[in-house]
Nucleic acid binder design. Structure first.
Lengths: 225, 225
DNA sequence: TGAAAGCATCGTACGTTGTACGTACGATTC
DNA sequence: GAATCGTACGTACAACGTACGATGCTTTCA
């Protein structure tokens, strides 16, 4: 019943339980069985350790969740400064963010819900602002842009893993949708199966990109303060 | 300690506990004290009812959460068919979605995490697809567009209520950020305080709109299948 | 080489959660 | 008036987070 991510078996040597091992095992556990399955007992069992031993490396479960956020942020690839144009690097970071989110879909709610507190969690943001500065954006517009991109990417992945419009999937009878007074959804339903989800993501990302380019071209902030 | 949303006091007549009352009270409770505070005992206490009485109207807690999603979707304003142009109505729905999300920020994770199963929850989607059809989008592009908008709006509100970059807020010392090797964030920090969040939302929304318009003008699907 | 100290590990226990179960009570029907 | 039924309620149990104290293993100094 283990998820396969075990630490080295106890072989006479002292068991090297540490924060990093705990966090990566927690991520693996959530990946395999969902956020609801993450509890201190199960995590300890996965590590072959007593429950309370965890508390010597993590003050409480909230800190454990924040640690997961940290781990995910560290997985985001930050492109070299010299590699390609700014928009190419921006796209690379967006895709990397999505790749991490897709690799750990069950963890994504944590990414959106919990604040980025540690320096490790903030590093990708730092890199993003660097790219946006190169793009010629001032602080205010950089903030709006980054938030828009991150909101799109994380929102997309969450809807993706939750099953976007799954209530309209091929399992549902189109005629039933008609009877419910949802004619457009009845049409949409047949197009929801067999989607190329990567293409859909890129299409939406491109849509946001187009907006940004159009925004940059206009030079003016479109609305409000 | 009640949130003020009580049902009619028992006055000799049998207590009229029903699903709708339970759901709206649950929403009020989550609004007031957060998702973590929503448990069957607290909800029953709020209603002046025994805990297990709830289970006669809601099969279990998961169904209760799905019911909350239903209530929120019913709060989304669906503009009349004859009122204004399609893009005006699209903007209205996006703002209404955000208004609902902002009125119940603690509930938003449910909106993103749980599938829309019931007809009531699907009705705003139906209206959205109607608008997008008027905009001249075929099913595939309509799906991409709706998902992009919803991902942006819900992602934005979640980050908003979780405190976007709250780890960089005015509470954090800018010099500390410099020492951590986060110079851009140190600059950004001063711009994070006193933001006009409504203007920020509209700016991001406008950014996505610009992309959609640009997309429509080009007529071709930008990427992939 | 021995003892002392310090920390990581673990077993136990308490309060809170979701909810299964059995029971009591009012309304409705014959 | 009696049988039926749906709803409300009290109790009870398993699983959760975690506070507490005792038990080791490792290291350090004499």
């Amino acid at each position: 019943m283990t998820t396969g991510v075990a630490r080295p078996e106890r072989a006479g040597a002292p068991t090297p339980l540490d924060r990093a091992t705990i966090l990566s095992t927690a991520v693996a556990l959530v990946d395999a069985h969902g956020l609801a399955a993450l509890n201190m007992r199960a995590l300890a069992r996965e590590l072959g350790v007593g429950t309370m031993s965890l508390y010597h490396h993590v003050p409480n479960k909230d800190a454990l969740l924040d640690g997961i956020v940290e781990v995910l942020n560290e997985e985001i690839e930050i492109p070299d400064l010299e590699s390609g144009s700014w928009d190419e690097r921006a796209r690379r970071m967006a895709r990397s963010l999505r790749a991490v989110a897709l690799a750990h879909p069950n963890c994504v709610p944590l990414l959106v819900t919990r604040p980025f507190s540690t320096a490790a969690a903030l590093r990708p943001c730092e890199a993003a602002f660097q790219v946006l500065e190169e793009a010629g954006l001032g602080p205010d517009r950089a903030i709006v842009t980054l938030r828009t991109f991150v909101a799109y990417v994380l929102g997309f992945v969450m809807m993706e893993s939750a099953g976007f419009l799954s209530g309209v999937g091929p399992d549902r009878d189109p005629e039933e949708l008609l009877e419910l007074g949802l004619p457009h959804l009845a049409v949409i339903a047949s197009h929801l199966a067999d989607r190329d989800i990567n293409a859909d993501f890129d299409a939406g990302l491109h849509l946001v990109e187009l907006g940004l380019l159009s925004w940059l071209a206009s030079g003016a902030r479109p609305a409000g303060g």
